[in-house]
Computed example of a mutant assay.
Amino acid sequence: MRKRLWKLHSWIGLFCAIGLLIIGLSGSVLVFHEEISSALHPDVTLNAPQDEASTRIPTSELTQSVESKFPDFWIRGWLFNTDADKRDRAYVMDRGGDEWHILYVDPYTGETADRPLDYEETLYGWFVQLHYTFFADHIGMIVAAILALGFLFLSVSGIYLHRPFFKAFFRIRWKTSSRIFFSDFHKAIGIASVPFNFILGFTGAYWNISHVAHELIEHSHEEEHEIESPYQEYGDSIDQLATIADQQIAGYALNYIYFPTESDPTFYLYGQHPEAGIINSLYGSTIWISAENGQVKHVTNLKESGWWAKVVDAFEPLHFGGFGGLFTKTLWCLAGLSPAALSITGAMMYFKRKRPKRLRQKPEASLESQSA
């Protein structure tokens, strides 16, 4: 049993190695994507210096300014940045097309970049596509989900196979053969990163599988994909959304608005209830408001939701580690490197283990040639 599990662990590890290497490294970058983007492009992502008297421009004016400045685009979503130093993000789409773009907007001055950026032009967008889809859309998402499930299996089987290693935790024999060194290093990384491996593997697999399943179910009911067009008549009513939302959930923090379309004239609001904890996402409580008459169509208060909804909502902060500031981000960044380290050390262990067998075969082959 143990020998078979060891072989299965080795083969699955080799099969997943390159994919997990890419996912791990890209995930580590995504943990600090905002800090990296701000350092590389402060003129695009950061607000102008503000004094205490500075106030945000009304959202209706910001949206009108964006669509006037870029008439070939229309707004699909608006992300309010909770960090006062960083710009809001307008998610826009080219009219008559279905390609998403990102535009950073200073909410105090209305200043924007020279043009909306294609999603994959941004550091965040490029690494998200690499991390979740390998730039292969739904096929890539399925592959990433399979790799995440493989990673979970490797974590579970690794605990079983190396359970005696807990007795000598972090024992690395430096002055010995490279095979033993890589074996000790592999076990140490695997054991130390077990909690992170379960969190990252399970949440990543859940997101990709649920997204692909949703797309398959949704498209199975659609005969042809239609390009959306903007709903033109919401005007200044967008400034009333926060007030309406607060009437539904007192103290509601509005973080993202998904804009109405001609086929679906509804504002979808995503935010937090006032008692949200550090492992609650920014988008767990949702409110749907009609763009035609301002009537509330649906309210989901995460505080009153079931336990599974609360668990799923915690996946985002738990996956990226942003809930505890720099300390947890650093831990999660290092944890993201563990799949890469495990892939490399696991591969080295496998090939080092194979090498002695070949060496033992050489004298036998030589004797056979001499006897011939």
Rank of each mutant, 00 (worst) to 15 (best):
I209N: 08
G201F: 02
I238Q: 02
E228V: 13
A205Q: 13
P195D: 03
A242K: 08
W207Y: 13
A205G: 06
G204V: 15
H214Q: 13
Q232P: 00
H221C: 12
H219M: 09
L216G: 03
E224Q: 07
S229N: 12
H211K: 11
F202P: 01
E223W: 09
I209W: 09
V194T: 12
E218R: 13
S210H: 06
L241D: 04
H219F: 14
G201V: 07
L200H: 03
S210T: 08
F196Y: 07
S193E: 04
S237G: 13
E233I: 00
E228T: 13
A213V: 10
E215K: 10
A213S: 12
N208A: 13
F202L: 13
Q240D: 08
A242Q: 03
I217D: 12
S229V: 12
Q232A: 11
E222A: 13
I209D: 11
G235H: 13
I191D: 05
L216S: 07
S220P: 07
I238R: 00
S237M: 14
W207I: 08
D236E: 11
G201P: 02
G190P: 00
S229I: 09
S220G: 15
A242N: 07
I209G: 04
G190F: 01
L200W: 04
A192D: 00
E215V: 14
G201T: 02
L200P: 08
L216P: 01
V212T: 05
H211A: 11
P230F: 07
S210N: 09
A205M: 14
E228D: 14
G204P: 09
I191G: 04
S220K: 07
W207R: 08
Y231C: 03
T203F: 02
E215C: 09
I191V: 06
N197K: 05
V212R: 04
W207P: 10
G190W: 00
E223I: 06
I199A: 08
H214E: 14
S237T: 07
E218A: 14
G235N: 12
E224G: 00
H225M: 15
G190D: 03
V212E: 03
F198W: 12
G235L: 10
S220Y: 10
F196D: 05
I238Y: 02
L200F: 01
E218S: 14
H211T: 15
L200T: 09
L216C: 02
H225C: 03
L216E: 08
S237N: 15
A242T: 01
E222R: 10
F196M: 12
T203A: 06
T203W: 03
I227A: 09
E226D: 15
Q240S: 08
S210A: 13
S220N: 14
I227D: 01
S193A: 11
Y231P: 03
Y206W: 14
L216I: 10
A213D: 14
I227M: 11
G235E: 13
I217G: 05
A205D: 10
L241S: 02
S229Q: 11
I227Q: 07
A205F: 10
G204A: 09
V194S: 08
E218L: 15
E223V: 14
I191F: 13
H221V: 07
I238S: 01
G201H: 01
E218I: 10
P230T: 12
H221Y: 15
D236G: 04
Y206V: 04
V212D: 00
Q232H: 11
E215A: 12
A205N: 11
E224C: 01
N197V: 07
W207F: 15
I238P: 00
E233S: 06
E233A: 03
S220L: 01
E233H: 02
S237H: 12
